[in-house]
Structures are given as structure tokens and as C-alpha cells.
Design a protein around this nucleic acid. Structure first.
Lengths: 121, 121, 121, 121
DNA sequence: GTGGTCTAGACCACC
DNA sequence: GTGGTCTAGACCACG
């Protein structure tokens, strides 16, 4: 899986890495148990400091998306908690996005169409 | 409309103000053309630096939610561009949120149920 | 509150800081809402890099013990989730400790006496 | 006695082995004088490097839980020093755990109930 | 080989 | 002023 960084973005690099890996897991490009690139390899690949990649992996670990096996590095978790819930943070963001959709004149149906396109990937 | 700040939030204060005003517009608590409090008044009311409020108003103006009138200060826009589109930033956020929903085991239907509750709310 | 680091310990410095702050909160030396030393001040005081202190604060934030107010730095949380539960990690540790107590010949009563002394503190 | 390794754990593998053997001794699954599997046998059984098992056995020997006999390999100690004391390390850990229990709102009684369940279990 | 930790110094957003 | 982020380099524990 290719990870690309947008230097101009206001989103911190470690967050961008985290986001893209979560995306990869959600759409199947990263399979459960699959090994992620090593911290050093990924750092070199995208031309950043390895501490930054390490921070991204630490965050993903804390969130339960990956784990680190001492023998083989970082891997995608085998089983996720399918609690069918969004974090409070994400719910708050969703609330904001929907408010913006409403102001822009989007109907609920139109909003759902947009979501469906994203869901399909 | 009451604006409340969460000191513990990682969202910058000026963003929180901006977000709450957009929410207010979307759910009708702020009517088109309605006058917003002055920068100084709002700053005093919520006990923050007026520079911060000013930053929020500037952002809202840039995004087209409000306009400033020399005589009467800031007012909610009369008519919004009903372009039925989300900003790129919001679309990207929505993509992230949906990816997290998928990993958490939420089906599209369940996600839509959540959205509907927010739409109504 | 004085924080002292044991360089010889195998426990990472950022963990030692985290541990001592949790101890301080639990025994009342750190009051709810109280401001912690700034990252830089604490780093200088104990003669370490500020990144290390920052890491400790980030961890404490994630665990919900403190929050950072953009205006005044890091503060002890006002209200804790009184879920009356230990983390899985701590429960596992407790299990280990109790097994060691048993092998050393400690009875349950003697173990409780030890705990009581610690509780009083 | 079956020893199982958690790849996702942050606890080093040699520590996990050591912990489980101490647990086995404390709850009687390992009798005094009982012979432990050879380093190589255990390493093969759980699919890890034999150096790791060796490290666990060395640690257990240092702590006085087992001894090695040239003829018959590693055995559980016959008689333990019933000094009724925890190691400094464990006492420090217990102090940490209790501080977390206090912050989580657990009373001393509730903490003791948890301990009792572990003692029995 | 791997990730984890730490340093010394820098820049940035927010307020 | 604050914390947050990032770099370039180093050392360590683990396996």
C-alpha cells in the first residue's frame, strides 16, 4: 500500500499516516494480520524522520488498529471490536459536516448518495 | 444563541466558535440576516481574548456564512449558495469517518440511521 | 509537587513522570483543575529533554488524567470517570503480584494489611 | 502446564513465560520439585527462539523459583523462602495500581473484593 | 533485524 | 507565553 504525504496540509504527518492506514484497513487493501512496513522503511520511503512514523504506529496501536509483534514488527489487528460505534470525536465531526451539508442546500437523500459513493470506495 | 467553549477540547477556540455558529445557522437558531454579537461583546461573554473571536468571524466571512456591515457589525448571510457541495476538507473528513465506521463493524444502514438522528436533532 | 527520576530504572522516564503524577492525583497532592508545570519548566527542573515530558503529558491526556487548556497549559482533570474499574493491564499486573505474594507465603490478610498501608499512604 | 504467548502484548516473551510459571507455582499447577520442560522442548512447543526460554529460566533461577540440576534439568524449588515479602519492584507496582484504583473511584473494600476474586481464581 | 526511548534543537499554531 | 510537531542522530531491549 502506498502512503502519500501532503506537506502543505495542516494535518500533522503522523495523523496523515494514521488516516491512510485506517483507510487501507477499511477498504481491504490491508488485510488482518498483514505486516506493515517497518518504521525505518516507511520513513525512508516517504522521506521523513522515523520518529514521525513511530508516532503514527503508536497512535494506531493505542486505537487498536494494529499491534506490534516483537518478532516481526507492526501488524494489522486480527479481530476488531465491532462495537458499531463512532468515537465521540468522530460523531462531533459528523455533526459539523452534516450542518455544513444542510447549509449548502444538500437534502438528506443527496447527502446519503455522497456517503454511498464513499462507502463503495 | 449561547456559545460555549470546551477548554479541554483539542479543537482551537476560534474553530469551536465558528462551528457553533454554523450549527446555529443550519438548525435555524440563527436566522438569515440576523445580527451576531460584536466581537468585544462575545469575547467578554465567553471570557476569552477578543482576537480569538475576531479570528472566528474572519473565518466565517471567508467561508461565506456571514458578512460584515459597517453600521451594524456582523450578520448572517441572507442567501446561501446552495451549491449542494461539501468543502474538500469536509469530504476528506467524511471519508475518514466512514472508514472508521466500517472498521467498527457499522453497516451502511446503521451509519445512515446515525446520520438521520443527527439530521433531525 | 516534586517529581524525581531514577535514571537507573528500567522504567522509561516518561512513564516515571506519568506514574508520579497519577500518584499525586490519587493522594491529593495534585488537586482537580490544578495546573501542572509547563513542559519546558518540568524538563529543565528534572534535567531532561522537553520531548520526554511532552510524551508523558500526551499519555496522561490520552488516559484522561489531565487535559491541556490552550490558554494555561496542562491541568488536572476536574472530574474523573469513576467507573471503579482497573485497566486490563493493571488487573493482569495485580494477578501477577498476588501470585508472588502467595508463593512468598503471604496470607490474604497479610496482603491486605500491606494494601491498607499503601492506601493510607 | 500449557504456556501461551500473547504476540500482541507489550510484555516481553521471556517475561510472559516467567509470569506464567510463577502463576503455575502459586496455584499449584506446578508442584514443588516438579520438572519443567527442557529449554528446547518448551521453545519448540510454543514456537519461539530457545534463547528466549533460556532467558526466562535464568530469571526464574535468579528469583529463586526454580533450580537446575545437571541430570534432570530445571525443577521447581522444593521449599520457598516464606519471607512474606514482595520484591521492591512489585511493591512499587502495587502502589501504582492502588493509585489508579483510587482515582477510578474504587473504595478499599471494592479493591479488596477484586483481590479476593483473584486469590480464589 | 525490530520497535521504543531519548536528546538537542527548531518551527508552528494558538491565545 | 503555551503545547504540538518534526528533524537528525543515537542507544537500548528484544528475539
Amino acid at each position: 500500500m502506498v502512503i502519500s504525504i501532503n506537506d502543505a496540509s495542516e494535518i500533522p504527518i503522523y495523523q496523515q499516516i494514521r488516516n491512510q492506514i485506517v483507510l487501507g484497513i477499511s477498504d481491504g487493501r490491508l488485510a488482518p494480520g498483514e505486516q506493515l512496513p517497518t518504521v525505518r522503511a516507511l520513513a525512508e520511503e516517504i522521506g521523513i524522520n522515523s520518529m514521525t512514523v513511530s508516532k503514527a504506529y503508536t497512535l494506531l496501536k493505542q486505537e487498536g488498529y494494529i499491534y506490534t509483534d516483537r518478532r516481526s514488527g507492526a501488524r494489522v489487528r486480527q479481530e476488531f471490536e465491532t462495537n458499531k460505534e463512532l468515537s465521540e470525536k468522530s460523531q462531533e465531526l459528523l455533526r459539523q459536516i452534516i450542518s455544513e451539508a444542510k447549509v449548502s442546500g444538500m437534502t438528506q437523500t443527496e447527502f446519503f448518495d455522497l456517503c454511498k459513493r464513499i462507502y463503495k470506495g
